[in-house]
Amino acid sequence: MAAADDLPTYKDVADAAAVLAGVAHHTPTETSRTLDDQLGVSCFVKCENMQRMGAFKFRGAYTAVNHYLNDADGKELKGVLTYSSGNHAQAIALASTKTLGIPSTIIMPTDAPTLKLKATQEYGGNVVFYDRYTEKRDEVAQKVKATLPEGTVFIPPYNHKYVIAGQGTVGKELIEDLQSKSIALDYLFVCVGGGGLISGISLAVKELSPKTQIIGVEPEAGNDAQQSLEQGQIVHIETPKTIADGAQTQHLGDLTFDIMQRNVSKIITVTDEQLVDEMKFFGERMKMIVEPTGCLGLAGLRKLVSSGEIEKGAKCGVIISGGNVDLERYCKLISSTI
């Protein structure tokens, strides 16, 4: 169990919203008559692909860096270290180096998407590579940290109080925007990698719309979260091979797992083929480029509608986590059968 002091609460999410005001984008919630007609539900799509650096990760990264920059113990922040397959990497580089002028070192896998690698470097991040299939990134991070100046802090992609709180602002915005139109969600579908997004969102949703059921969606090839909730303990898996690179995590964190156990109704899985179908739908019908990981939520909703588990007329929220995908790879994925 995570220590109580490390666990974020809704107050931390609200505080994060205040920190992010005027810094992060308040992203739109879009609808599609075609989608509603196809599924027989009312669908509300929160577009974090339109967030700064193209993904929700900016929210958590900036919230965490801001916390250390203004830490009450008076220690000077000399640098930020993290590891990431891409979106958190970009977020840390943008939040710390590009925005606040604090050096950032990012440990990235050798097979990280070119677009995400290039953007991380352009935001000023110093990239160190590792092989995600043969090396353990925690061990690489320890070695790298020993070479960095004292005063460098490590901010992980998801298992961090202020990262989770920042990600939770996605849910706060969505629920408040819909409530302003007298809309209450029955279900909310959220992608799952390490659990930072869904755990943060769940804190906001359970506070503001407690009857809403939160459903996590992860790749079929990497269902560690599903296994973890079913077994009541964190399950570790080998790095999954999936096109959803943002969900190629091996396990949940103790913080995210604790929150998910209390707030998430269930975890379901979808195939890479289903993700490609949703990439095509977003591109063709909603005119948006969405990365494979960002399609997990809609693929999960469509799966449960098809199985009859979602009632007709239900009000369903879907989170698009990001839109960062190499255009060459995007074109190959939507024009081929996996």
Score class of each variant (00 low, 15 high):
Leu115Ala: 14
Phe281Ser: 02
Lys46Ser: 09
Ile320Glu: 10
Leu69Glu: 15
Gly308Asn: 01
Gly294Phe: 09
Asn159Gly: 02
Asp245Lys: 05
Ala221Ile: 07
Gly308Gln: 00
Cys191Glu: 06
Gly54Cys: 01
Gln38Ser: 11
Ser84Met: 08
Glu273Gln: 15
Val217Pro: 04
Glu309Gly: 03
Gln213Thr: 08
Met286Cys: 01
Val41Thr: 15
Tyr158Arg: 02
Ile289Thr: 14
Thr134Met: 09
Leu188Phe: 11
Gln231Val: 06
Ile107Trp: 01
Gly54Tyr: 00
Lys116Cys: 00
Asp258Leu: 06
Thr134Ala: 12
Ile183Tyr: 10
Ile234Trp: 01
Lys98Met: 12
Arg302His: 09
Gly60Lys: 05
Leu333Phe: 14
Val153Phe: 02
Val127Ser: 08
Ala14Ile: 05
Lys181Val: 09
Phe154Trp: 05
Lys143Tyr: 00
Pro28Tyr: 08
Gln213Pro: 03
Glu176Trp: 05
Lys315Val: 12
Arg33Thr: 15
Leu39Glu: 07
Gln248Leu: 07
Glu291Ile: 00
Leu77Arg: 11
Thr212Arg: 05
Leu296Arg: 12
Ser202Phe: 07
Gly222Glu: 02
Tyr123His: 03
Pro210Asn: 13
Asp73Lys: 09
Gln121Ser: 14
Ser335Asn: 15
Leu7Asp: 07
Leu35Phe: 06
Thr9Cys: 04
Thr114Cys: 05
